[in-house]
Amino acid sequence: MSEAVFPLLMVSPGKEVILVSLDGGLNFRRRLTDMGLAEGVMFKVLHSQGRGQCIVRVGNTRLAIGCGMAQKIMVKEA
């Protein structure tokens, strides 16, 4: 079974997803990884503001993700 991989931008609030890859520069990847958004991690989209601005919950951490990042965060359904 092939699993569809899509950017976080397309995930609606309330859905749980697994992070597949971070398609950005080294600093971008590291920053997110350090804050808990590493490859293979499951997280939940809590709110979405449109334009990719969203709040996700990883473990017990709520992370606010600003504009322009969500299209670089590739996820699959959990």
Binding site: R31, R62, L63, A64, G66, G68, M69
Partner: peptide
Amino acid sequence: SAHFVMELPP
């Protein structure tokens, strides 16, 4: 600009 990620405290 740099990307914006911030932890939201409870």
